[in-house]
Design a protein around this nucleic acid. Structure first.
Lengths: 142, 142
DNA sequence: ACCACCTGTAACTATTGTAGTTACAATTGT
DNA sequence: ACAATTGTAACTACAATAGTTACAGGTGGT
């Protein structure tokens, strides 16, 4: 299975908040750009808010970045919207037979390898900041 | 979401085939070690067979490794059991609004970043061979 | 040739996660 | 006061996974 599209939507939202920082970013406006339902946007913004990446205000609010775009990287975003705890990108198979030499030790062995692979991916995400994404988007527009 | 436990099960199976290469590895025996249903094992072995990692024979068969354990790495296994095509670990959000400068270009921008992160993970998997896994398992047994 | 054993596969169920949608109370700025 | 907007609950639809039963067909030993 693949990582939920919430991640892609979240990046889209943050990029839009930066580019359109003058305008009023209602969930409906953002939903128009992402092409989905406003509630989906509000849900993702809620997660980003809990993670301290955006400021939101109820009522006639709209959202805005809580940090400079240079100070938001994609790992921050990934962690914010991925509700699986870190270290669980790969699922272990539960309760292998402890009476078997393989079953007895496989969990630990796999855990080490899986964590290493997951970290490699996350390190790559951490290298990319929101302002790089925005730069790329705007450049592509010319 | 996380990567299906088929991957962990597949590694377990391959390790067992190597360690128990003298014995007869029926799906029921393997299922005993993994602690699941024999049909689940046969399904995974089917995928491993299609990928050329194991030999299977119908009837009173049992499975065996098709290559030396030094010549099977975890990326081979990952690709064998992961039916999503490569490059789709991260899901894109479909059809963003092309009238919006963000929606217009975000797909390409994200694609580049996502591919890089996925490759980093896969490179890490490719570094680990089955015989390293087996070595680790047997060592843990002492 | 028989037969016990095993594989390959189809069909079904249960469970889970995601995404989209409607609805509405609570909050805010004008 | 009022119109607009958020935050959230509740529901539907859908897809993937894993487990299970069932069974047709191949294989090797005797």
């Amino acid at each position: 299975m693949s990582i939920s599209s919430r991640f892609a939507v979240a990046i889209h939202i943050l990029a839009l908040l930066d580019i359109n920082k003058e305008g009023r970013n209602t969930s409906e406006f953002i939903a128009g750009s992402v092409n989905t339902n406003p509630v989906v946007i509000r849900r993702v913004i809620g997660l980003l808010g809990k993670a301290g990446l955006v400021h939101t205000s109820p009522g006639v609010g709209g959202a805005s970045l809580a940090r400079l775009p240079q100070e938001i990287n994609l790992l921050d975003v990934y962690r914010a919207v991925q509700n699986d705890p870190p270290g669980e990108l790969f699922a272990a198979h539960d309760k292998p037979n402890p009476k078997c030499p393989v079953g007895q030790n496989i969990q630990g062995t796999l855990d080490t390898v899986f964590k290493r692979a997951e970290s490699a991916m996350e390190d790559e995400l951490a290298k990319v900041t929101l302002d790089q994404i925005v730069f790329d988007l705007v450049r592509g527009d010319r």
